[in-house]
Design a protein around this nucleic acid. Sequence first.
DNA 1: TAGTGGTCTAGACCACTTG
DNA 2: AAGTGGTCTAGACCACTAC
Lengths: 249, 249
Amino acid sequence: MAIERHVPVAEQVAILLHGRIADGTYAPGDRLPSEAELADELAVSRGTVRSALAVLATAGLIVRRQGDGTYVTGVMSAERSLMHVMWEFTRAIELSGHVPSIRVVSLQQRPATEKEAAALNIGLGEQVLSVLRVIHADERPAFLSTNVHPANLFTQAIDQLDGTIEMRRFLQRYCNREIVCGDMDVSAAMPSAEVRDALSLGANVPVLLVESVFYDADGRPLVLSTSYYGGDKLSFHDVRRSYPWAKTR
Amino acid sequence: MAIERHVPVAEQVAILLHGRIADGTYAPGDRLPSEAELADELAVSRGTVRSALAVLATAGLIVRRQGDGTYVTGVMSAERSLMHVMWEFTRAIELSGHVPSIRVVSLQQRPATEKEAAALNIGLGEQVLSVLRVIHADERPAFLSTNVHPANLFTQAIDQLDGTIEMRRFLQRYCNREIVCGDMDVSAAMPSAEVRDALSLGANVPVLLVESVFYDADGRPLVLSTSYYGGDKLSFHDVRRSYPWAKTR
DNA sequence: TAGTGGTCTAGACCACTTG
DNA sequence: AAGTGGTCTAGACCACTAC
């Protein structure tokens, strides 16, 4: 028998409301029913409705105005931060209207370099799993990406691993770990000959270089990722996350 | 008599706990008192304590583990997203250990171009306020930035505006608007002669180009910002914001 | 098993916007 | 004045972890 997963009520409410926005029951510009009405209709407490609405508001799907009401914005994507782009290349490519595919160049286990050991918080020379891939958009190479994981996260033999799945799912499936945050460096660079080749670029075309370390909820490094992007630009949406009380005087 | 600002209890609790973490009362690695103990000590409800802790957890200052406890992480900066970097250049420069300064190149009012009108959701040819600035780090130019605002946000005469203050404060002070989210494009580019000059760059050095539109809580565009960054790399920290239920199956 | 954080409820009052 | 979202409370039960 499958594990019975307890699904929080607020989550179910959020999914339900998300569905109503997605299918146009609540269309962009519409005002949603009040918290009290929703609580009444769904037979849950007002606090539960508020939790669900807070999720949708944070995602940008709705806007809430005290004394007025809750309105549908028309924004539908909740996963457009730069971090999401970097850990879910294919979704980012889909969102921009192209067809993604992942090709594995190499997948190997080897000792960590000094830089990798420092970033992943492991001993120098400890084993790492290194995955080099090219992510295509409509059969044209877009990203050249190297993911380096601490090998001790994995229990499977290396030839059991499927390198064509997205980094985040890869970590979920094989390590049962969830990416929660990341430190990222973005810079402009002239590509080396290898990178230029892999991305089929002309001469004298700069690329974006994104170097990231992603962590789980406990702050453990899961992956050091180095990605070159040869396309036009990376687009994303960001929402404020500073302290609400951090007013500028 | 000054306006009496009502300060939510949860916010006061968050500030208090933030202070205890900052001053080492709760040191990195320490376990915080339980929610019940904090609620008891501060004479507030457990829900209020939870709200405060949620803010600190989102900022990354603490980690919470069900059945175990709440722990201090050692991470102190809550404002390191790329969006914050782009709207608070000087803070980003400070965080990287340098001394920032802002120099205004020009500040003028003129009709909007087609691109500006589209981005700012105003009519073509409506007036905009355009601010061109160079942001220095330790007397070396780091960013060349143009901010274009809808002129109708401003009531002051143009010569009353102080262009040396940060964009976010600028909007707060003169328009009473708060930046809440933004759409951003990041790309690598070869700088034009003017940009190369302004940033004192050598030949054949690529720059980062960040084009952003920032919005207030109601989705109104406040500014179209175009920034060139001539330094090594932009570093920032990002926290997951996808739907908690958006599990990858 | 005791104690932690996670969720939900029902009710109250406040701040704000709209008519 | 009526109705909205924003905040806070007190209490309950559950899921999980450490001992």
